[in-house]
Design a protein around this nucleic acid. Structure first.
Lengths: 199, 199
DNA sequence: CGTCTATTTGAATGTACTCAAAAGCGGTGG
DNA sequence: CCACCGCTTTTGAGTACATTCAAATAGACG
């Protein structure tokens, strides 16, 4: 493990440590199961048709997962920044080809674990079972809220809410990706922004 | 435990047993933590402002969780039928008041566990930690797919997909609830159905 | 049978999309 | 440093998707 990497493993351990407490030995066992990886901007972590082999923790950088429909339009499922996770759970757990893509938007540093090692890790360090349970519970809560927003709010309202929740998001992302996350077209998002400015 | 109830505990144990394997003692410990409850049609399991005190397994019947916005419109987050779970995870885990409602649509039989007992159960029967991890993973996968449908499909397409996935849903639910689940108005759903019939 | 609620229908309106063109904004190379 | 290229954003016009409001019809339940 290089000096560089140790910084990234530390952020993973901090992340896990904020949910469960690990002793030194357990921390080592955790780190032993994760492999670091670096992506350059526009580099793909997962492409339509691949099997998603890893659950991925983001140490640094920014990624986007999206689906491309038959007409070629992109629909953004998730963004992931520092201290978040990203994967295609369905493809990962069932080891089936995905219909999604994950791409780095910036230079990105990741820590990855495959299904087998995750299994082994949960056997060796049973607390990690709890960690993933908690992680998934939080993910469920966030997703429920997003579903509620999608079925109850207009495009303009969803945009305002996103801005309130992540004020800095516009600096880091082109608008068209925000639009595809909200479920509207880039043209319509531009119109929404114009109306906001005119007030 | 009455004879009646044992039938319902059996379905819970079958449900859990399909994800993890429990021995007889563990099965008893599980059952000891759950309390049965019966709801009549239109009876509320949870009301806006309450704290969600239970995770609820549905033995029999049908429930709906929904949010009422400022204008009084209802938005359906989830339906739950036999062998499904329903709760407001956010309210349950944080023990905070909910903004949602859960109501029985039919006569319903439930098994409920509160946060403290769930905690105790996971300590006594560590496998249950795994059970809830798996349960939440599956919930996440389903929610991701619903989000993708919401941002990439039209109302008519979402309706067709729902019918394909749950062909019998129309027998069990008024249309207005289906509409509020899809994120469209009942009037519009009626128009969609008319167009389908005309083909 | 009457009442209450759900569904349908129609018309008008608003929300969001498509298409096309123009303007803006980096990055790259001369 | 500027000109050019490719990509993103803006703008406008026309269209389609979805909502609101109101009234009529249909179903469910006591």
């Amino acid at each position: 493990m290089s000096i560089d990497n140790s910084e990234y493993f530390k952020s993973l351990l901090d992340h896990i440590g904020s949910r469960i407490s690990l002793n030194a030995e357990e921390q080592e066992q955790v780190c032993a199961m994760f492999s670091p990886r670096v992506l350059l901007p526009r580099q793909y972590l997962l492409s339509q048709g691949d099997i998603c082999h890893y659950e991925t923790y983001v140490c640094k950088g920014f990624l986007r997962s999206f689906y491309v429909d038959k007409t070629g339009n992109e629909h953004t499922l998730q963004f992931a920044q520092e201290d978040w996770w990203i994967s295609d759970l369905s493809s990962f757990l069932n080891q089936e080809p995905t219909i999604r893509n994950i791409v780095a938007l910036e230079k990105t540093v990741l820590l990855q674990i495959d299904l087998q090692k995750r299994q082994q890790l949960m056997e060796k360090v049973p607390k990690m079972e709890k960690f993933w349970r908690i992680l998934n519970e939080k993910a469920c809560i966030a997703q429920e809220q997003r579903i509620l927003n999608n079925i109850s709010l207009s495009g303009a309202e969803r945009y305002q809410l996103l801005l309130n929740t992540y004020p800095q998001i516009e600096q880091r992302l082109p608008q068209k990706h925000i639009a595809s996350f909200l479920g509207i077209t880039p043209v319509f998002l531009s119109q929404i922004r114009r109306q906001i400015i005119q007030k």
